[in-house]
Design a protein around this nucleic acid. Sequence first.
DNA 1: AGCGAATATGCAAATAGTTGACTATTCACA
DNA 2: TGTGAATAGTCAACTATTTGCATATTCGCT
Lengths: 184, 184
Amino acid sequence: MALSHAILSALTERPCSGYDLAKQFDGSVGFFWHASHQQIYRELTKLEQQGLVTAEAVPQEGRPDKKLYQVTEAGQALLRDWIAQPSKGSPLKDELLVKLFVGYLVPPETAIAMLQQERSHHAATLEEYQAIEQRYFAKPAAMTPAGQFQYITLRNGIHYETAWLTWCDETLATLRSMNQGQGE
Amino acid sequence: MALSHAILSALTERPCSGYDLAKQFDGSVGFFWHASHQQIYRELTKLEQQGLVTAEAVPQEGRPDKKLYQVTEAGQALLRDWIAQPSKGSPLKDELLVKLFVGYLVPPETAIAMLQQERSHHAATLEEYQAIEQRYFAKPAAMTPAGQFQYITLRNGIHYETAWLTWCDETLATLRSMNQGQGE
DNA sequence: AGCGAATATGCAAATAGTTGACTATTCACA
DNA sequence: TGTGAATAGTCAACTATTTGCATATTCGCT
């Protein structure tokens, strides 16, 4: 199932501890997948039992010892096969859109405030992505294939956030004109 | 939790049977929420026990009898309160992006084929949305508030699909140039 | 010394979601 | 008459996810 694949993908990109993996899922991987740390550890145990990853205890200084996880050959082969299979679509679940579906139940000011909040959240995320783009992907043509594929996922995020902002602006304009229409 | 809210929203828009509700979740509501019909019936039972919806048996001719569900005053009040609360963000889970994160594991031709398939899927969805827009929302300014809010959600879908298409085209161009770069 | 934060890991219960299977009614068609 | 499709609904087992909680180490600060 997809969490195992997401974990294998993240570890293929960079072997790391369970803790760091969870931080990846809060960070860069979190844009296109997410999981709680409890889930991640649970899945890592399974993957290890299946021989798809190895766990190696690494003593550290100044911090607790950690377990370094890396993908085995079998793990990578499984990932390769999975990549080549048709992807399942990703059905959306968006609370804001559910709310807007019956947005007429609340005053327009409420809806407007909701959209403004949503807009500022997406604007902040877009800025974050653009900062990453500038910092790490300033010269895409000069990057390794691995880097280029990572950039591709970042570009998806940038398009996504841009589309949300465009829609927020359009919707705010609509709501404001509805509000004025009702003020008469 | 959100499925109950999604059901209350759908029933507020139009009281209907469990079967029709499931069809709504396969159709228009399915763009921003989804649930299996088993889940829907289960949730309806709960909502009825909580006094948030009523179920009324309706005899029919030429088809089995049905249960018509509608939202109670309490249900609508709960929905109104929920709408006014801050929305939780909707973390994404996208299998294709996981695959592309480690896309270098497969030949570029495989990645290109993946993107082409994805592109055609999004193009078809966009066409569907645009057809709905033309058919039901040709004159947004002349619509009821309820209709306008529905149109707002449709517009989100249109922006979303458009962004995906743009990104697919951009990514296909990238992959093709990577493929040519490697062909040397 | 104790506390909080960061690093590092893990268990368990409850809830949410998926999948499989099933029943019943009605209609249309071979 | 039997079959398949559409309408209409239900039960159950399994998987995935969320939430709460916990342990341990190390560091820095009061």
